[in-house]
Design a binder for these strands. Structure first.
Lengths: 358, 358
DNA sequence: AGCTTCGCAGGAATCGATTTCTCGGTCAAG
DNA sequence: CTTGACCGAGAAATCGATTCCTGCGAAGCT
């Protein structure tokens, strides 16, 4: 039985023909390689590789290889494999902040699916910054990641190089303009509409809105949904008087609410378009000793531990986990070779399955 | 000027001597390699490597290489580098759940430091499960990660193989028994003591305690701190009557509080040893319509957005971010080759710098 | 001037797996 | 019985960077 060309690592064969382990060497405790498995099984490394990857190998050989691999507790070195294959079993997930539970839920959704399909996940926090986002996209490229799930921090993430290399990218929660990329989104307009309706249904007379930055798509869509219902109730009032743009953070919500309170004929209820800003809005209300009856609040998105509910806030949970799961499934499809134009999946907001299970 | 031995990828040189780009080939859009840089600079790949890694190279050559690298926008392929060097610039952070803000803050702390030192971070969620934790540890091993920051899900994480390979591991928040591993911990006993004292200071007469699982070290230590103060106030009472073990989750806190309420001569205040259980405890109290004055609560750890504070809970914030940062610094020291016995860093709870800055 | 030393760049081996190519052997058809 | 197709395993190239080793040339020393 011929030995592999290269002596297995940790063995010396230059002068001694007899191969002997070198336990004092720098490789003590290292993982076995395919060469060691091949040598133990009395086959070539190529055959071991074939067995591992399920390529046709005659039964007897396959059995010997499997036995040897088990005995040595062999795991293929993912780095070597990645170098050769030019691809890996790793996905990147880039979120704007790990500290908002909405995104951690989304991350769970992605992870569940990735995990189930044998992929690892690298979680990256772009901190809502274009530069950090770009850096992580470069990392994904350099690391030959199999795909990227991206919650874009800006309207124009730097995807060009990634797409050139045909690395699948799926955007979640926010879409990307001008680039053909799959996306999984919420029906933001509908959620906002529904939140506004609920406040009117509860008897409030004039419902204002606090939304996110002007240039952010989700913020606009949610404001649009509110505006639609508002205008129906107050056809002769300019809705913009009752709309505030903030930054999707606690402090922004705080200030926006303070500003709304000073409005002439101020609103008696407010739709706040994300969870963090609602916390800020609540803070202002509590500071001003304004009760939930005097000023109704609706919040798009949830905060765990029912904080908001307890304060009398009308909460419209968003399916963050489903969003992540759907994005991951779409990404895996593309990685699996699915062709066709970029898809745009809009999740129903009422709960229910994200996309049909397979 | 001799050409490199291997023709650069994407070029053919078998029949034509003239090297010409092959834009239709499968490598369109691929990243440049060190061979291409070498060829453009008219030097050997070895020299390019030296320049990139800051090894001594004469000025003129170095300049040519740098120019070529810049022109081609060259980034060394981390996979190839990792294979050769048998190590990477990636850290793993394994936390029990991404959905507890305590751990996301901790993650931020780790990330800040890692990022600053040029390391990437892979965030893994063990879901408090031994098997998932083991899997991630195996991944860290196989991926040649530079080090691991671990919040152990169990008392005996399977670190053996990682340590054999001399991969540095730092445990955070919870320590590991019987294994020589650096750890960064909180003074759990002191935090609990302090929380208990505060409730007595506020005038409560009998302070009970809800802590985590019996076999969890942090749960024990925190219970010990409470027990110490309790026994000082009630020398002739068996503290165990006023102690409940739950599971560190919301439901556990809910049930434990319900159980405490039925105690003969029930407590008029309770120290709850983590944030999630406090939410559960609050739920029970609100369901029973028991006011904050009737039943005081203290919580070890924070929940963002001041939920707890608003409910009259005495909150003792824990320095999660510092914990993560300190762990990361310790890990980077070890990666940098720091020798010596395993360290055990206990952070002060009052805030202030985690460990002296350098 | 001759010899050693030293610095520095190139050649080639190397990391560990995958994959193409090659070739010996088997079987079927002529 | 010979020849061609085919199957399957081994040999070797390959992925892209690092690093050991060799050797050239310049500088220093006697």
């Amino acid at each position: 039985m011929p030995l592999p060309v290269r002596p297995p690592r940790g063995y010396r064969s230059e002068i001694d023909i007899k191969l002997s382990p070198d336990p004092a060497g720098p490789y003590a405790g290292a993982m076995p390689t395919i060469y060691e498995v091949a040598s133990l099984a009395g086959v070539s490394p190529a055959t071991v590789s074939r067995v591992i990857n399920g390529l046709p190998v005659s039964g007897a050989y396959a059995e010997r290889v499997r036995a040897a691999a088990t005995k040595l507790n062999f795991t293929p070195n993912p780095t070597a494999r990645r170098l050769r294959r030019r691809s890996s079993q790793v996905l990147a997930l880039i979120i704007p902040t790990i500290e908002n539970p909405f995104f951690t839920s989304l991350a769970r959704g992605v992870e569940d699916v990735a995990q189930g399909a044998g992929y690892s996940l690298v979680l990256c926090d772009s901190d809502e910054r274009h530069d950090k986002e770009s850096t992580y996209l470069d990392v994904a490229l350099a690391e030959h990641m199999a795909g990227v799930v991206l919650v874009p921090a800006t309207n124009h993430p730097r995807l060009a190089r990634l797409l050139e290399r045909r690395t699948p990218v799926v955007s979640v929660d926010r879409s990307i303009r001008g680039t053909e990329v799959d996306s999984v989104l919420l029906d933001n307009r509908e959620v906002a509409r529904s939140a506004t309706e609920r406040l009117y249904a509860r008897g409030f007379r004039r419902v204002g809105c606090i939304t996110g930055p002007r240039e952010t798509e989700t913020a606009q869509q949610r404001a649009d949904g509110w505006r639609e219902v508002f205008s129906r109730h107050h056809p002769r009032t300019d809705p913009e008087r009752y709309l505030r743009h903030a930054d999707f953070r606690v402090a922004g919500g705080r200030d926006a609410m303070a500003s709304l309170l000073t409005t002439r004929r101020r609103p008696d209820a407010v739709v706040v378009t994300n969870n963090s800003m609602t916390v800020g809005a609540l803070e202002t209300l509590q500071r001003e000793r304004i009760s939930p009856a005097e000023m109704g609040l609706a919040c798009l998105g949830d905060l765990p531990y029912s904080v908001l509910q307890r304060a009398g806030v009308e909460v419209l949970p968003l399916p963050a986990r489903s969003l992540g799961a759907a994005a991951a499934r779409l990404l895996l499809d593309r990685i699996g070779g699915a062709e066709g134009p970029a898809q745009r999946i809009v999740l129903p907001i009422g709960g229910g399955p994200a996309i049909p299970d397979r």
